[in-house]
């Protein structure tokens, strides 16, 4: 299978401390891959390697390859701003800019100059908000401050912002942990629709959520990738004792 992102032998160090050990994992195109594992196992560290969000961390050292469509994103010739337009990110807490709803979505297309004129930009904003399942709720108040939306609406706005630049991959780090079950269900439904067009990677502590929305699941433990495979299989017949212990809620 061709992977959208192919991580090969990734080792990650924060100064002296190694956070990831020789991780190799392929992320299939048009699928959602869930990253699960106990707190501190390296899920967020791994995710941040996929769009070089780690670049700003002092003393960070990385070995191995992260190939996006076959090209190493750590190659010196790669433009990081350009890379982030291909690999977008949604965070745990919705973090809209303190601007209008419209400006939040228009921001990415503006810096990446993805439109010809104002009406083209309007179209991108409408399409992104529609895809994020938010258009009907906000179309009459696009100039209102984004911070006045509810948490679930803010998170969908952040997803609209991520997809406005038409990325290839969207990374999400616990995107529902601050949301109630209804808002969570909406995001999950959205994730399922988005994967037709994008490759998705989601970190979640909610194992049922991982089981519901992903096609592939990867289990991390103490910086190691213990097991990765088809989600249905991993949740019914995990191969590794540690995976079994973690997903069934046993002492490891």
């Amino acid at each position: 299978m061709a992977f959208k992102i192919d991580v090969q032998n990734l080792n990650l160090f924060y100064g002296e401390k190694q956070a990831l050990f020789n991780v190799s994992l392929g992320l299939p195109a048009s699928q959602t891959t869930a990253l699960i594992g106990p707190s501190g196992c390296g899920k967020s560290s791994f995710l941040r390697c996929l769009n070089r969000m780690n670049d700003v961390v002092p003393n960070l050292h990385l070995e191995g390859k992260v190939l996006l469509d076959g090209k190493d994103i750590y190659d010196p010739s790669v433009d990081v701003v350009d890379l982030r337009s291909h690999v977008g990110m949604v965070f745990q807490k919705p973090n809209p800019f303190p601007r209008s709803i419209y400006e939040n979505v228009a921001y990415g297309p503006r810096i990446h100059r993805l439109f010809k004129d104002k009406s083209a930009l309007d179209q991108i904003v409408e399409k992104s908000l529609t895809r994020a399942g938010l258009w009907d709720e906000v179309k009459d108040r696009l100039q209102q401050a984004a911070t006045r939306l509810s948490g679930g609406q803010q998170q969908r706005l952040c997803i609209a912002r991520a997809i406005a630049v038409n990325p290839k991959v969207i990374l999400m780090d616990e995107p529902c942990s601050a949301l109630d079950p209804i808002a969570t269900a909406k995001i999950e439904e959205l994730i399922d629709e988005l994967r037709e067009k994008f490759t998705l990677v989601i970190v979640t502590h909610n194992l049922q959520q991982a089981a519901r929305i992903s096609q592939k699941t990867a289990f991390f433990h103490s910086g190691y990738l213990v097991e990765a495979g088809e989600t249905g299989e991993l949740f019914t017949t995990p191969k590794d004792e540690r995976t079994q212990g973690y997903i069934t809620g046993r002492y490891g």
């Binding site: 049922q208 949740f235 017949t237 995990p238 079994q244 997903i247 069934t248």
Partner: peptide, 9 residues
């Protein structure tokens, strides 16, 4: 409990 893996089986 929403059992999984060997528990579910």
């Amino acid at each position: 409990r929403q059992p999984v893996a060997s528990d579910l089986r």
